[in-house]
Structure formats: structure tokens, C-alpha cells
Amino acid sequence: MTEEKILLDHGSGGKVSHALFSDMILPLFENPELSKQDDGATLDIDGTKLAFSTDSYVVDPIFFPGGNIGDLAVNGTINDIAMCGAIPRFISVGLIIEEGLPVKTLKTILESMARAAQKAGVRIVTGDTKVVPQGKADKIFINTSGIGVIPPHTDVSGCNAVPGDKIIVSGTIADHGIAVLSSREGLQFDSNIQTDSAPLNKMVQSLVQSDCDVHVLRDPTRGGLGTTLNEIAAQSRVGMKIDELSLPIRGAVRGTCELLGFDPLYIANEGKLIAFVPERDAQKALEIIQQDEFGKEAMIIGDVTREDPGSVFLHTAIGGVRIIDMLTGDQLPRIC
């Protein structure tokens, strides 16, 4: 840690966040479950394999096109559990509310949480509510944790990618980040882009219960697809080659990114997964994902390679090649 104080960069999900985790958090808590650095921990309790995960939500604004902080918090933890190959079952909810929040607003958020849990088939079984004085939090922060059961013979981890695997993304990227940005104070612009926040547990269940040999599942949230691919490349010590022309990106999202100087590869998603499967299973896995209501625009976007372990390369539309690095700092808009 070179900084004396925590900066916003430490929460970006990119390189600085990773450094905070590896330099300070991991050494203090060191254990085999945490060291795997997956979206959730995989636990073995007397032969039963469980997935356990937690996430906190501080999105601003709390309401954005297509969703709000409530359904986001439920779907996010469901997805983190699902990415361990598990079937999410139970969720906890911790609310930190700023004094003065309209009760009506809280009710709307809680109703969305209830609906999201019901849709995904999970139960919210425990929780906690705290209220802090005005200005000590921003409207509402939500923490959710959850557990799920990993079916026997399932071994999904970011460490399992091998050369020859095909990489599938379950739909268009960068929708969530741009939807939130479009409603952020000081940057309101008209767009019909909605968050992609969605539960992916049913998609994952269909995948792991098929005879496809799923190696890796991951939801590219904060830090975007680019950062997530880098994490897996490092965990599995493999290289990757991504084809720019096959990346699904909505026209409006691409256009907004152009205007603001963002790279869609680093913009957050909240209802997408990437799956790594051997080439022989790729077509079948793609079809399973496409049959799910949240996977209709899934595409095979690239391959895992033996060369350049730890690096991700993009083969660009014009026939060039460049590196996709992990996000460094928050993406900032261009100024000229």
C-alpha cells in the first residue's frame, strides 16, 4: 500500500482494488477458501459442498432505468453464489439507512427485493436494520449475503480455465454501468438503456446439470468484462484471445461510450455471465444459455490459449491486436 488514505480508486474493482486485497486483506485473513479468490467461497461441511458469498451495494442513484438498489442487491448475491456452480437458497439482508429517507422509498426498495428473491426462488431469511444520522450515509446502503448448495461432481472455479476452452458471454455488455450513469446527477442524458440486473441462477443450473464440462463461471460486474477476463487469466495461468467483432454491445451503449470516452470492456454488468467450456461442449453450452430468458444474445467471444499466460488479447475489427488490461483506476470521461 503506497497511499496513506483510502481513495475512491480502492473501490473501483480494478488494479488498485486488487492490490488492496492482495497486499492487506488476504495476508491478514489467509485461508484456503479465501485464497481461491472466486466470487464466493466454496465450503465443504461434512461432505456437503456449499457456496457462501457477500456483497455490499452503494449505487448512486438508488433508482435507475430498469431497477433499483434493492433488486440489484438480491440479484448480485444470487449471481455470486451461482458463479460457484451452486444453487442459491438463502439470503440475508443488512440495511444501513440514512435518517430522513422517505418510508415510501424504503418500501419500494424492499418490495423490489421481495420480488427479485421470489423470481429467483431464494428466501430472505435473516437481516439487520441500522439508521445513521443525516450525511453519515447516502440514502441507503445494502449488504446481502447468501448460501447455496453445490451439486455433486460440480467443480467450477476461476482457476479451472485450460487452453482450448471457448469463452461464452451470455449477452450484451456494459448495459448496467451506462444505465446508472445515464441517470446520475450532472450527467442526465436520454437513453433507452436499462440495467441488465437479473438472476442468473437458473441459467447456471441448466448449464451445470447438462453434460457440458463447465470449467469457469464468472459475472463480470464492477471492473467489467476486461477486468474479469484478466482475473481468470491470472488465476488459471492461461492466455486469452477475444474477437472484437463478436462482442455483443448495444448500439446505444457503444455510442454513449464513444461520447464519454469509456471503454465498454470496463463497464459494469449485473446480469451477465461468462462461461469457459471445452471446445467440444461450446455449441451446446451456448444453446443452453440462449434458451434462458436472460441469455438470448449470448455469443462465443474467444478462446483460451497456452501462449502469454496471464494476458488477454483483443483481435480488433480492423485486423489489429492489442492487450486488454485490468481496469486501472476508475474510468474517467475525456475532456477534449
Binding site: T316, A317, I318, G319, G320, V321, R322
Partner: peptide
């Protein structure tokens, strides 16, 4: 001369072609 060009050149892998 422009930074936006610099970014675009890198992003599209123009040097490599």
C-alpha cells in the same frame, strides 16, 4: 496531436497493422 487519437489508435490496435 490529439489525446483522443492516441486512445483510439491503441484501442483499435492501429499500430499493430
Amino acid at each position: 496531436v490529439c489525446g483522443t487519437h492516441t486512445t483510439s489508435i491503441f484501442r483499435h490496435g492501429i499500430r499493430s497493422v
